[in-house]
Design a protein around this nucleic acid. Structure first.
Length: 251
DNA sequence: ATGGTTGGAAGCCAA
């Protein structure tokens, strides 16, 4: 199984990039975040099963599948008043595949930050339930978390940011402490392995990025991990998203 | 300390 995740920052603006990338890489599942649209262009993907949670203007997630996956959840449990489209959970051959667009949380000190932390607690509760039920799962997407100092070009720049504060990173470690594996770090311990580069100040050209898109695997899936890589190529295209795809392969 | 960029919406917010 080849699963990829890509924050596309508007599906309308990135439609050609996405279609081309699928044609080259042929993923079994593609997780998309930040569709920024209520409607999804289903007719552009006639060969794929598209599971979509759209939202006008903001957020929006989709799972594009080459297989007949079953929708389990299209919202993260734990807050009935939360209307933001950030969570999709599907099942295929007994494994749950979870696509997340975790809240950014900036500016710190606002309700946006408390929403992020509460969202992470709700995610931990959901994953704990799956672990206790013995259900193997993969959770991937835009976590908006820089796990370690080496996952950004300069820790001093990020030290007061919602993506990097000890409280945020601590909640990310709580997810790992459920027994999950950060798939990318199994194979690559290098610094400067980024998935996002800001549009501003020539961040891409200067390679001033951050690693915030991740795949976490429950133990039985981690045992079958083949590889996990970041494909930097799409970030260099004209009219690129500010994120680039991360790909994981599982036997 | 400020400004730098992109997208979607509406005549600014979110990232």
């Amino acid at each position: 199984m080849k699963i990829a995740s890509w924050n596309v920052n508007s599906i309308r603006q990135r439609l050609d990039h996405v279609k081309t990338w699928i044609g080259v890489h042929q993923p079994d599942l593609l997780f998309l975040q930040e569709l920024k649209a209520e409607e999804f262009p289903f007719s552009e993907f006639p060969d794929l099963t598209c599971i979509v949670k759209g939202q006008k203007t903001y957020n929006g997630v989709a799972i594009l599948a080459r297989h007949p996956v079953t929708l389990i959840l299209n919202a993260l449990p734990g807050d009935d008043d939360d209307a933001q489209a950030r969570y999709l959970e599907v099942e295929y051959q007994g494994i749950h595949y979870i696509n997340i667009y975790l809240p950014n949380g900036n500016p710190v000190g606002t309700e946006k930050y408390t929403y992020k932390l509460a969202w992470m607690d709700r995610l931990a509760a959901r994953l704990k339930l799956l672990r206790e039920g013995g259900i193997p799962f993969l959770v991937g997407g835009d976590f908006n978390i820089i796990p370690e100092d080496k996952d950004c070009f300069d820790p001093l720049v990020w030290q007061n940011d919602a993506l990097f504060l000890p409280e945020s990173r601590g909640k990310f470690r709580q997810l790992l402490n459920l027994g999950l594996t950060d798939a990318f770090r199994v194979f690559n311990q290098d610094a400067h392995q980024y998935t996002f580069w800001d549009y501003q100040a020539g961040a891409w050209q200067r390679d001033l990025g951050i690693r915030i898109d991740h795949f976490l695997l429950s133990p039985t899936l981690a045992d079958k991990l083949i590889r996990c890589t970041i494909d930097r190529a799409p970030r260099g295209l004209e009219k690129a998203s500010d994120h680039t795809p991360i790909i994981v392969e599982i036997a």
